[in-house]
Design a protein around this nucleic acid. Sequence first.
RNA 1: GGCCCCUUGGUCAAGAGGUUAAGACAUCGCCCUUUCACGGCGGUAACGUGGGUUCAAUUCCCGCAGGGGUCACCA
Length: 554
Amino acid sequence: MDYQKLADRLFPYISETMEMMEEKYPERDLPEGAKVTRIAPSPTGFMHLGNLYGAMVDERLAHQSGGIFYLRIEDTDRKRLVENGVETILKVFHKFGLEFDEGATLEGDWGNYGPYTQSERASIYQTYVKALVAMGKAYPCFCTEEELAAIHEEQEKEKENFGYYGKYAVWRDRSEEEVYTQLDKGMPYVIRFRSEGSIERKIRFEDQIKGKMEITENDQDVVILKSDGLPTYHFAHVIDDHLMHTTHVVRGEEWLSTLPIHLQLFDALGLKKPKYAHTAQLMKIDDGKKRKLSKRKDPELALDFYFQNGIPVKGAVEYLLTLLNSNFEDWRRANPDAPYQDFPFSTKKMSGSGALFDIDKLNDVCKNVVSRMSAEEVYEKTVQWAEEYDPDFAALLKEDPDYSKAILSIGRGSKKPRKDFGRWSEVKAYVSFFFEPLFAPKYEELPAHLPKELVLRILSDYTKIYDPSLSQDEWFAQLKEICPSYGMTADMKAYKAAPQEYTGSVGDLSMVLRIAVCGRSQAPDLYSVMQLLGKERVIHRLDQLKEWLEAEND
RNA sequence: GGCCCCUUGGUCAAGAGGUUAAGACAUCGCCCUUUCACGGCGGUAACGUGGGUUCAAUUCCCGCAGGGGUCACCA
């Protein structure tokens, strides 16, 4: 078989050579130790937490070392293209603060190693495929889908390994005449790699995350170029990451099983291999069983879902970081205000086993993250979220930004900040009573043991004595002072010891006011709330409760 | 089924050949407290299994089991 002749026949329009490619995409000029990483999603337009999880490893590795983090679009599967897929990808990563240094953008490519969209790189792949054919390391295969299915069936029956290898590699050693006959007839074909591997042999390999391992060589003649002239993932990965000079390939562990193919291809082409980091997959519980997060089955893990639910970007990022490097939590406690980029991230600290997605933990991380934010930031983020998902609420917040921010600063800024909410979507319920349109009092939460007459008396008395100019201490002292006139006590210990001796405690007294003013029994510091609402509204609300109680009499 | 990866409490996990086997979330109890949200203290709760190496193994080795992944002209 004249391989060069075959190569020319197969790719007559490919005039460039491997050497020319190497010259066109020279080694990057980067400082020692700088890592080049990438994410290479297929533009299905669907991103979930798992994608972000992996991308963060890439981003940290690159930017922590002064390297390059770039975006490549893997769109070789023309059947699965989705409109606006690329836009969605770009938008999501931008939102999460993962910025690319290079790669595909909506305005075209940015960087010297493009094109960064695989469908635009067909001739590049073909150049290398042609070279492989010329070396006799790749060959055309004319099998139809049906023939391959038949082979699979036979293997199943014979209990043999599946795939295109050995005697099942039917086009591997066909005569020149047979091949050219098919070509002359214009039959469609794929190009397969001629594997010299054997399942009897093992390869030693060291993964950045999983460490040393032994894997079986690949003996399959895998397809490297599909009949539409585009490469399969295996081949595109090898060529692209070589030409773009990726130093570290971070990908899900589902790729571990095809790793032998990739290593084999690098060797066949005489190319330097990148380092690999195979990340354990994010899992979820399904029917009591652990399962890999799936695009199709877990739409609730789509990143859009997080945005909708008002999960703070920072919260999601920090949660992921705790999964990625468990010592992140310790570091965060020691450095509460440092940007997470300061954390010394390491693949060595990554777990080899898949983490179960834990919504409780996420919630907790979010609460902590939000509690550390300034009122200003909380205000801005909440408005931003509400503008998209709850416009009425956004408008309400923006009516008087200073008022809104003042509300959000209650209990914020101290060493022990309040942790009332961890999501932007929870803010509305928390602040609702500060806004007339949202004020929906639940007067039935009044302490049941207080006689209605007593409550009415308290309300009308307090209307007369409420003095907003008092300091918080003075204000509370006043409450204590008036307790006895209602048969209540300000001494909580005494009250707890013998509750039957009193009509109630200062706690009950406060509760009456709280229910009147806030319309509910759970609220932040009552004094602050009253200060913010202003005397007029406080008194009005006391009156409102009075009216409600009186109306109830009928 | 073949191949590969993984295995410490409910979850995420630290850990070293000899430890009272960290910590966080969740959960339970107590305390603080004018409610709540915090905060403090404490409780329940773990090294899958069988061999081997060793004075000693949860830690090293082998087998097994369990879980996960993968076996496409998808990535």
